[in-house]
Write a protein that binds this DNA or RNA. Structure first.
Lengths: 333, 333
DNA sequence: CTGAAAGCGCTTACAG
DNA sequence: CTGAAAGCGCTTACAG
């Protein structure tokens, strides 16, 4: 591909392409954008495409956004959670599917102190989505910046769940231990601020499931090395008749499993643990950790479908079913 | 703050502000942008500011980018590494410092299959930075998209290091074990594809340091549960006279420590392990993991200074010294 | 089927 | 000190 602008010092515009192809600027736009309702003869189209390719033409995104009123950017606002393993698969798949439709996905985690300007001011995205609801000031700010689609919408919480923080995973953890005969369970997390809201959400889901199975309340307990060591915590659990531990993620499961082994317990006979996310450590750890695997790639594609539905009014696929998480049973359950 | 556009359905523009303040559109721009060389009387300035505030005016970023030729966006391209813990601190600090200078930071990890259009096409960033070099096609693509500053620049590898993947951490791991009398070391990682390039970089740095201390070659060894269990690997190390393990991160350190304890070894007397990143598991694990902590917040600020130097030609602070990592000694060394 | 032209909302010399 | 005006590079009715 030639890079003429590097020699002329000027960026290639649609006018350059038009001249090279011997058509008008408008025609270039019609061809390159596949504008519906325009019937361009095959050989004109061909000439334009070739000229664009030859000149290395890239439309100016700012000019396009200004003229069309749409930036073709989708902003995904992520909460400040410890990034879940395999989030990349989710984002990769979503970005790929959106790209095919001409949209770019940008992710953003707001500064904890809210000190910096939110990214939607700089990007004017067509759609802003988040797994957690927006505050009213955030919504007002987005509207002022011309964002036309926001999800979840204020006052409309009754919409499909596109987030990674589904309740199906924790439910599966509970079901699994229940099936294997465990009746006394706890929910374990690190006392880490960043983990707090994720732990709260997953704990809630697990708790609700436990209750609906007729189990007793599922306490959220912290594995805190500082105040007495994991070993002592595990000992306490055993004394209280606990036989199964639901960990908020695989790191926590590893810490629990490690303490249990050191205490001379057999796993899963004396104590069972189930992690979440199927992170690398779940396979590498000895004993290998039972965990929950989420089809994040499928979730990512689902997110893209949803986003396109909101923006382009594309119909949602009829077969739109949330991929179910699967339990990977290894040596700790 | 009033949100008039939500009632009129039209976004507030500089013209609205000008009318409300009783000045021209240009003056609005001068005041809001603090344009140098313009001397605006205090009360005009005051009127404009008040009108903008009152109307909830947000400049249209696309129009601004088109007119000025600068998007005020900085794109940070991150490699597909397992996201290092505390990366958030780095990004938060960098975003905050850049925000003060009127720039927005966007991060981007390219799709592994290179299938989606790169984000610089949609954003036209003023600067694109990455901790790893760009491929020639990437550079050509950026130039075609009007990106004027790229770092690292092709053919100029001799520039300051702004990345998180510094060699100082691995060097510190080696120094620490060396000081504590260890002479036979290995470097451990999971055999995970995504970890490969990070492991290679850190291993290289550790290896070089080991050689310069007169130690023997530092092998990169995989903790692979599938082919024989971590326990067997640890046993092999002991037989080979290894007394110290340098782990690529804290997850790997946890897996090693766990195997060592299970093998009946005393830590650190029989075997020492040092992790990297000071992730939550390093504190929560028993035994608590010795590790390397990097002042990622300071690194993030350093990144912002560097970016502003490149874009706005701001002088680099004279006292510009890279924050040194520190070794956090706990129970495994 | 294709082109001439207005317009998107800013920035920025240039006058006065 | 402030305004009128050109221009950034597209999109999109509107003519022909």
């Amino acid at each position: 591909m030639a890079v003429p602008e590097s020699t002329t010092g000027r960026r290639v515009t649609a006018l350059d392409v038009a001249r090279e192809a011997g058509v008008s600027r408008a025609t270039v736009g019609f061809v390159l954008n596949n504008t519906p309702g325009q019937t361009i003869p095959a050989n004109t189209r061909e000439r334009v495409l070739r000229a664009a390719e030859h000149l290395g033409y890239r439309p100016n995104s700012a000019a396009r956004a200004l003229a069309s009123g749409r930036s073709r950017i989708i902003l995904l606002v992520l909460p400040d959670w410890p990034v879940e393993y395999r989030l990349r698969d989710y984002l990769d798949e979503a970005a790929l599917a959106l790209d095919k439709a001409g949209y770019s996905l940008v992710t953003y985690t707001s500064h904890p102190a809210q000190a910096a300007r939110p990214l939607w001011e700089a990007l004017s995205p067509d759609l802003v989505v988040s797994p957690v609801p927006f505050s009213p000031p955030d919504v007002a700010s987005m509207l002022a910046c011309g964002v036309r689609e926001i999800y979840p919408e204020p006052n409309r919480p009754d919409l499909p769940d596109v987030s990674l923080a589904t309740s199906a995973g924790p439910e599966l953890q509970v079901d699994h231990l229940h099936e294997r005969g465990h009746r006394n369970l706890v929910f374990a997390a690190f006392p880490e601020p960043r983990m707090a809201s994720l732990a709260a959400a997953r704990h809630q889901a697990a708790h609700d499931r436990a209750r609906s199975l007729g189990l007793s309340a599922l306490d959220l307990q912290h594995i805190d090395y500082h105040d007495g060591s994991a070993d002592r915590v595990v000992r306490r659990w055993l004394d209280a008749g606990i036989t199964g531990v639901i960990a908020v993620n695989d790191d926590v499961a590893a810490a629990v499993a490690s303490a249990a082994v050191r205490a001379g317990l057999r796993m899963p006979a004396d104590l069972a643990v189930v992690g979440h996310d199927d992170a690398p450590i779940a396979t590498m750890f000895v004993p290998a950790l039972s965990t929950v695997r989420i089809d994040t790639a499928a979730l990512g594609r689902g997110f893209a479908e949803f986003a396109l539905h909101r923006i382009d009014r594309r119909p949602l696929p009829a077969s739109r079913t949330r991929p179910k998480p699967t339990l990977v049973r290894r040596e700790t359950s």
